[in-house]
Simulated assay, not measured.
Amino acid sequence: MFSSIFLKLLSIQSFGKPRSIAMSSDCTPLFDLLTPDLINDILVRLPVKSLLCCKSVSKSWLSLISDPNFIKSHLKHSITKPGADQVIFATERGTSMSLLRLDSCEIGATLGDISSVHYFETAGSCNGIVCFWFSAFGTGIPCTYLWNPATKQAKMIPPIDYDDVIIVIMGFGFDPLGDDYKVVVLINSFSRDWTIELYSAKTNVWRTVEQNLEDDPNGGLFDACVNGFVCCISYRTESDNMLAFDLNKEVLTCIKLPEGYSPIRITDFNLFKLDDEACLRDSGVEASWTKMLTVDVGHRIESVFGHFSSGDFLLCTAEYGWVLYNSDKNEARNVPVSLDYRRILKYNESLVSITGFEHVNFDAREDVSSSEFQIGSTSSSSMMMPEDTLFDY
């Protein structure tokens, strides 16, 4: 509530109305009563759109909101605020990307037009940064971007050689130890077995990670980024495993999934917690899991997308399509659109920027065949699941 009052005072100051409107009882301007610490505590709670406007208030506010420490504090508040989770999605045969507001189960802002893109797929979302790739009609050349939908900034990362490729599996996440955003790609081709390619946003280059894969990944992307690890499920004849790539040490580890895990569901699914991260950092340590709960929704489940801070699970059911199910309340709400599981991301807005970011207007009606970000570019010069959790899906 105080933040909304603060914004009203800000609008009075910003649009040149008499300062007497914003006076205290002793005729002192209210803004003069706000200490720097109090201003920081208020601003860190505001949405990104409001903060971008606040940059124009003064040089000191511009400096504060642009400060890396403030951006980290704002991100932490955004991630930990109950109910702040949103979903970025594109519908089946969709022509745009939009936000799904979990609090109201309503469709929010449209973020971008993808109607002119031949193929579009998301690779992950982390700290408000989204990684996606697409190929334009008539080119067949895949382009990969890092994008902040809230600040409308993005960059295209250097292309990678996809010749002779059978399968490409992509993941995106944040390396907290190296303070770096990275894209990892597992490539299987006709001429060679699996190889690992890694992109660093800090260096803006790809390099090959020398490691042999002992397991075959499943699907087309890593499912989650947790504490500096991107993870995906792999399926073998004798057992099911999880592959975890350490973004800092740049090592891929295979760990055994918990007893009782099954990719086959009828009306229920399980939520497991990994007891210790040691098994992710050292392949010699055996994984230990604890079953947190079993959820039975009473209808056949096609897929489980994720769990959110509101307590909701995003599910696809055979009978009702996509629903938000709250296990605590035993309530389900219908999602008003049919989602494409390859184009769904858990998302929290942020001010985070990456070197090379430029302001963009995500409008795919423009020519997207060039090497520059031509989705309406107006140049100015990534399913995280909760920590250490695994869904039985």
Results as ranks from 00 to 15, higher is better:
residue 15 F to D: 15
residue 18 P to A: 08
residue 19 R to E: 11
residue 21 I to R: 03
residue 26 D to I: 02
residue 29 P to D: 04
residue 33 L to D: 04
residue 34 L to K: 02
residue 36 P to C: 04
residue 41 D to K: 14
residue 50 S to Y: 03
residue 54 C to R: 00
residue 55 K to Q: 13
residue 57 V to W: 05
residue 60 S to Y: 03
residue 61 W to R: 09
residue 71 I to Y: 08
residue 71 I to P: 01
residue 81 K to A: 13
residue 83 G to W: 01
residue 84 A to Q: 01
residue 85 D to V: 09
residue 88 I to S: 04
residue 89 F to E: 04
residue 94 G to E: 03
residue 95 T to V: 11
residue 100 L to K: 02
residue 103 D to V: 02
residue 104 S to V: 09
residue 109 A to P: 02
residue 113 D to S: 09
residue 114 I to E: 11
residue 119 Y to A: 10
residue 123 A to Y: 11
residue 130 V to T: 04
residue 131 C to I: 07
residue 140 G to I: 05
residue 142 P to I: 08
residue 147 W to G: 11
residue 159 P to W: 01
residue 161 D to F: 06
residue 167 I to M: 03
residue 169 I to F: 02
residue 171 G to V: 01
residue 172 F to W: 06
residue 178 G to I: 08
residue 187 I to Y: 02
residue 193 D to F: 04
residue 197 E to N: 15
residue 198 L to W: 04
residue 201 A to H: 07
residue 202 K to M: 06
residue 213 L to Y: 10
residue 216 D to C: 14
residue 216 D to N: 14
residue 223 D to V: 05
residue 228 G to P: 10
residue 234 S to A: 15
residue 237 T to S: 12
residue 237 T to G: 01
residue 242 M to P: 00
residue 247 L to R: 00
residue 249 K to S: 12
residue 251 V to C: 11
residue 255 I to C: 10
residue 258 P to S: 10
residue 260 G to A: 07
residue 267 T to I: 01
residue 270 N to R: 15
residue 278 A to L: 12
residue 281 R to L: 13
residue 282 D to L: 07
residue 283 S to K: 14
residue 284 G to L: 05
residue 290 T to D: 07
residue 294 T to V: 04
residue 300 R to P: 05
residue 301 I to V: 15
residue 304 V to G: 00
residue 304 V to F: 07
residue 311 G to P: 10
residue 321 G to Y: 10
residue 323 V to Y: 05
residue 333 R to M: 09
residue 334 N to E: 12
residue 334 N to P: 01
residue 343 R to H: 09
residue 347 Y to W: 10
residue 352 V to T: 15
residue 353 S to Q: 12
residue 355 T to S: 14
residue 356 G to K: 04
residue 358 E to K: 14
residue 369 S to L: 05
residue 380 S to I: 13
residue 383 M to W: 00
residue 383 M to S: 07
residue 386 P to L: 13
residue 389 T to K: 14
residue 392 D to M: 11
residue 393 Y to C: 12
